[in-house]
Nucleic acid binder design. Structure first.
Length: 678
DNA sequence: GAGCACTGC
């Protein structure tokens, strides 16, 4: 294995030399299994080197001869770029040559690229133009145990492709608990009724390979009796560790921003009270809502003799890796998204974690030396936890999924071979919406051109419909901007502690009477004109610069899609001062109604809203312009239940008559529980 | 009066 010694001399000291990674000694057996079986399930912990080493093994074993490519997917963009750069370094090539990567807005590949890293969502997109993914000899699906929507769809597609391409090799990297499930999925017949299509025996399909685990042991400790307040218990535990345990930083898993801000403050106060008996302690927050700059503090080395304590959301479970963590405190909870097919309402609530999550969290302790994990629950409670969380596909709005599957030529989506089939109510709800939007015809076939175009646009179906109607409302340029801004998901504004008033003042300056969508349009226009797309402008106005530049990219991409559909975007109208701004505003509101009619609500005398079905009490989110303002009918981008209340966000005033005008069938009076507009 | 985390040529 001389090549590893050679390679290792080029690796920065920061990196663990390849030859020392546990995986190196499995090289031959791994290659044998991949050669022999179409499907290989690889079990390996973080740090085992599977993501970086397996592609190199495959390359040196000749899997890219005759011009074929090895594809490696990751669920997240950052993972794609970091792993690709690392492998390019180890191979000793420039990134984008032999080793490259591709993520949305960034394609760092060339005709020479033989090992290609990409997001699993992007590989699905490639299947739209190359249904058999024929350029790949091997596809490795990394972090499959996370069970993201894209990963699940990709696995279903790969199972289908395998029947037509028996020579294709599929490698799935998984955590221990899920490995059997993946293997069963690929070995079971995709259609139990159908006669066996070939002579392939189940044992010939795949094999599980376990790579040696981590190097450092982790002591797991449980509470003797349940904690009645895990937040206070977490803070106590931090201070106990600080007083009693040896050197090393602490990572605490909590559920959200509110808890984390409280914990950070309480910890500093209590450490100050304890005085100088112990060394200094530095509590830091970590959650996605922080600006990149604020997030970076958690990676800084604390001053000599100071112990760093990071209070984090689930972001530190898989997405962000911090070195130097020796102690993990696990609250046992996570905030999870769910979707109710009955009401169409998404919710975000704290739920107990799974066993898989618990072990992933514990594993964050032992990366550099032996560690300890303090679980703020009893061992009995742990035994009662589910093995894994329900996959995302089973708790999401499936409209985008169905659109994508149909575009891939899978017409019978109900019979699609899902790793875990979603509940049928989710399916029917999504089909109903797609039909109402005109994406599907009465035979549930994708319509031409509308349905196909909606599937290709990288925005959710209601916004896709809105965009594709915009030309007829003469507000295409404006709607492109609104689509880009809403797809940022609320990260437009930022503030530091105590900065909130300033942010709200700034936000008020961009406000437009008719609602949030027009306000977002205003913000974007100011950023690209007055603001010159500069970060200073954003900083002054409490705008998130990263989000704003992202909006520019998304807008550009959506515009290119439309141009590919031969829809001309006239930008001259958008930039010049409008003689009749109110007329354009009305066109925009009408256009929004044509796509968001299913998200309509009417204000009640008490100031809350009711959706058209009548049942649910909706509150304007405090971040909305419509919060505490009078309106009659509105459409909204998103509805979410958190804690006790159900909020609507990104709200725009409309006229009741428009609903009947643009969605006559949806609002047709048929029976007593219909969506009657009164 | 307030939202976990991802993502799409």
């Amino acid at each position: 294995m001389a090549e590893f010694d050679l390679d290792s001399s080029f690796i920065p000291a920061l990196h663990k030399p390849a030859a020392l990674l546990p995986i190196a000694k499995h090289r031959e057996s791994l290659l044998y299994v991949i050669e022999t079986y179409p499907v290989t399930i690889v079990i390996g912990q973080t740090g085992s080197g599977k993501s970086t080493q397996i592609p190199q093994f495959l390359k040196s074993a000749g899997w890219c001869s005759d011009g074929k490519t090895i594809g490696v997917t990751q669920p997240r963009r950052v993972a794609v770029t970091t792993v690709a750069v690392r492998v390019a370094e180890e191979v000793g090539c420039e990134i984008g040559k032999e080793v490259g990567y591709s993520i949305r807005f960034e394609d760092i590949t060339s005709s020479a690229t033989r090992v290609k890293f990409l997001t699993d969502g992007l590989l699905i997109r490639e299947a739209l133009v190359d249904p058999l993914l024929s350029r790949y000899s091997v596809i490795m699906v990394d972090e499959a145990h996370e069970r993201s929507i894209s990963t699940d769809i990709l696995l279903g597609l790969l199972k289908k492709i395998r029947k037509k391409r028996p020579e294709l090799r599929i490698i799935i990297s998984s955590a221990t608990l899920q490995a059997e499930g993946f293997l069963k999925f690929f070995t079971r017949s995709s259609d139990e009724q159908a006669p066996k299509e070939d002579g392939e025996k189940k044992d010939d399909v795949g094999k599980i390979v376990s790579l040696e685990g981590r190097t450092y042991p982790i002591d797991v400790l449980y509470l003797e009796s349940p904690a009645d307040n895990y937040l206070e218990r977490a803070i106590d535990t931090v201070l106990d560790i600080h007083a009693q345990e040896g050197e090393g930083d602490i990572l605490v898993f909590l559920t959200g921003r509110e808890e984390i801000d409280h914990a950070v403050q309480a910890t500093s106060e209590r450490a100050a009270q304890a005085g100088s008996r112990y060394g200094a302690i530095q509590p830091l927050p970590l959650y996605a809502g922080l600006s990149t700059e604020q997030q970076m503090y958690v990676f800084d080395k604390p001053p000599e003799g100071t112990r760093k304590v990071i209070f984090s959301t689930n972001i530190a479970e898989a997405s962000v890796t911090i070195d130097g963590i020796v102690y993990v405190i696990d609250s046992g909870f996570v905030k999870l998204r769910a979707y109710s097919p009955m009401t169409g309402i998404e919710s975000l609530t704290a739920t107990p974690i799974s066993k898989a999550s618990a072990s992933q969290r514990a594993g964050r302790a032992g990366r550099t030396k032996p560690g300890k994990c303090f679980r703020l629950y009893t061992e009995q409670h742990f035994e009662g936890l589910a093995d894994a969380n329900a996959p995302e596909l089973q708790r999401s709005n499936l409209a985008p999924v169905i659109l994508q599957l149909k575009a891939l030529g899978i017409d019978n989506v109900v019979r699609f071979d899902f790793l875990s089939p979603p509940p049928s109510e989710l399916m029917s709800k999504a089909l109903e919406l797609l039909y109402a939007l005109g994406a599907l015809d009465e035979y549930a076939k994708l319509t031409r051109p509308l349905g196909f175009r909606m599937a290709e646009l990288a925005v959710e179906p209601m916004m896709a419909k809105t965009l594709l109607s915009a030309q007829s409302f003469s507000c295409l340029s404006e709607m492109l901007t609104i689509a880009a801004m809403t797809s940022l998901g609320g990260s437009v504004w930022f503030y530091h502690d105590g900065d909130q008033k300033r942010m709200e003042n700034s936000r008020r300056k961009f406000a437009v009477e008719e609602g949030d969508h027009l306000t977002l349009l205003n913000v974007y226009t100011a950023f690209v004109t007055r603001g010159n797309k500069e970060s200073r402008f954003c900083h002054d106005k409490n705008l998130n610069y990263k989000s704003m530049t992202r909006a520019v990219s998304i807008r550009g991409q959506l515009k290119r899609y439309l141009e590919r559909f031969n829809i001309v975007v006239d930008e001259s109208l958008a930039s010049q001062p409008k003689g009749d701004a109110s007329k354009t505003a009305e066109q925009i509101r009408r256009c929004l109604t044509s796509g968001y009619f299913a998200h309509a609500a009417r204000m009640q005398p008490d100031g809350t809203y009711r959706n058209v079905a009548g049942g649910t009490v909706l509150h304007a989110h405090p971040s909305s312009l419509m919060f505490n303002r009078k309106a009659d009918w509105v459409v909204f981008h998103e509805v979410m239940e958190t804690g006790e209340k159900t909020f609507i966000r990104d709200i725009t005033k409309i006229e009741k008559g428009w609903l009947l005008e643009y969605a006559p069938e949806f609002y047709k009076v048929t029976d007593t529980r219909s969506r009657e507009v009164v």
